[in-house]
Nucleic acid binder design. Sequence first.
DNA 1: CCAGTAGCA
Length: 730
Amino acid sequence: MTSLLAGNRAQSVSARPKNLSLSNVLAYGEHMARFWRPGSERPRATLVDDEEGGVLFVSAPPSSSSSGFGHSSLERQRQRLPVFKYRDAILYLVENHATTIIVGETGSGKTTQIPQYLKEAGWAEGGRVVACTQPRRLAVQSVASRVAEEMGVKIGEEVGYTIRFEDQTNPSVTVIKFLTDGVLIREMMDDPLLTKYSVIMVDEAHERSLSTDMLLGLLKKIQRRRPELRIIISSATIEAKSMSTFFQARKKDLRHAAEDCVPSHLPAILSVEGKGYTVEIHYVEEPVPDYLQAAVHTVLSINDKEPAGDILVFLTGQDDIDAAVKLLREDTQDDRRRTSGLLVLPLYSGLSRDDQGLVFAPTPKGKRKVVISTNIAETSLTLEGVVYVVDSGFSKQRFYNPISDIESLVVTPISKASARQRAGRAGRIRPGKCFRLYTEEYFLKEMPTEGIPEMQRSNLVSCVIQLKALGIDNILGFDWLASPPPEAMVRALEVLYSLGILDEDAKLTSPIGYQVAEIPLDPMISKMILSACNFGCSEEIITIAAVLSVQSIWVSMWGAQKEFDEVKLHFAAAEGDHITYLNVYKGFLNSGKSSQWCYKNYLNYQAMKKVVDVRDQLSRLLRRLGLALKSCEKDTQILRKAIIAGFFANSCHLEEYSHNGLYKTVRSSEEVYIHPSSVLFRVNPKWVVYHSLVSTNKHYMRNVIAIDPSWLIEAAPHFYQLRAPNLAPC
DNA sequence: CCAGTAGCA
């Protein structure tokens, strides 16, 4: 057990990426407190041309001593942030370049400070707005309130934010606006050129989320029509180079521009150091056969040998994590002396709010906290107090096979960028250590530098419909930051065509296609809702749509499986999960939206509140689209027909003589099973339609309804015409 | 004989 650590070779490595190499020293004046303003003389910086891409680099100026008297402590804190030294350089680059790429790790202060610098320099004057996008809602809210505090204003006035369900802005006074990148894409539907924004900063671009990639592609298009727009891309990794190449204006466009036109079409790159402490990296000498065992041993070993400090372990999923937690807690009982000081806590998104909260509680005196987490702690949540990180080298990732149209969750080796990010989590309060459960040779020679962008491993129907709604007809020719496989694009077009959302020329149909684009949900759900309006069951269907759009309304279970199943029986409907959800929602309303009631019924209260929110928004949206809200009063056949209108492609029939619940999809004869969480698990009706497939060991259908196969032909004759002979009577 | 990486509109 202890040999594992002894076998680790220690190597001192900074967890943060090195600064970009082409550096010159900025010769700075002493007047750090003064702002550089557009139109004034440029800061005395040395700018260097990169021969490869014509990229400009600005190097790190010597650190300045703040003159700081007369400032509030908040102001002094702002000046101590690493990014402060680069204020003039950033403002200069933004003034002179259409696109500026800022490479900076966590703690550099770029997210909170740069929007303020831009405002101070006048970019928010004359009714213009500085925007800053984030991939996550929580980040939008917390960054916005921090900036409002620093500026001494109330949130929703000069500084505001917009996320779904919450618009905390005031159009006449808001000058700095934080929003999710998804919201900004939605805003383009009303204002395609985003005319009110003078600068748009896209933060966390290295995460390469679906909507960030899409936004960057769209912004590049906008830039051609709005030369005065400035774009800042902020990224934690040196992927900057490919971003820079992407944003470089094409030669054709440059011909008309003067050589030294302002702004330059050559993107600028600036590197800002972070505030993280050095993290010592340890590798194993031999590959480990079982990362779960290795992780547990490493934790015990750290507890034995290393001084106080919390431990963060990265595993892949709930299964792994629960198993590891169990092992460590058992060990606590076996061997009181050694591990009695360990407080072992799981962390993943499926946990209830309360359980997630436990990991943020301060560690009791004399205890050492061990948090066993999924990727959620890599980007979404930050744990203070972590000094040791154990990195399994794996995470679960979603992959999409456009041929079979199936998404699967696969345990996948992480990238070097992720490994570095994970290690960095150990260096937030003081120098830390990271124990990698893979060899150094593997890290250096085999681990991929960057992960595969989400765009290249996803189903693209939502993407395609949004681009269509923005009037981009040539999807295959769209200038993507990373092109998705053409098969995936073709598949998305096919699916949208079969739903009647696109016509033969791949144009949005009227009114269905345009209405679907207006609804901020998966197109199959939107189609289901629109059909429900015709069937006269929209009241019920928007409830179902709302439930399907939250993670899971059931509370994640530990031991009480049997009681849980019994409670669920209360609500269970023979027709399937969707109808069951209606019963749950009704019960929730009858209870007066009580959290106690949720607790008793193994329901996630937060999730139920979100269901109510989403449902409200959908009913407002339907009213705006002039569609009727009607109830079908318990006619579950009509309800299921409306569901089928969106999900007819997901039909399956039970294999004859199947004793283990084997189904085959009608479309492609894939072998699938009903997910154990479904109320139809073990009920196994002859014909079913599922909402989604999750593919782990097997293909599991989640959210299933029982149907009559004749409804399929009725709903989608074009889709089932050729297959009709296969639809045996039931 | 049985289970959900993360996240957004």
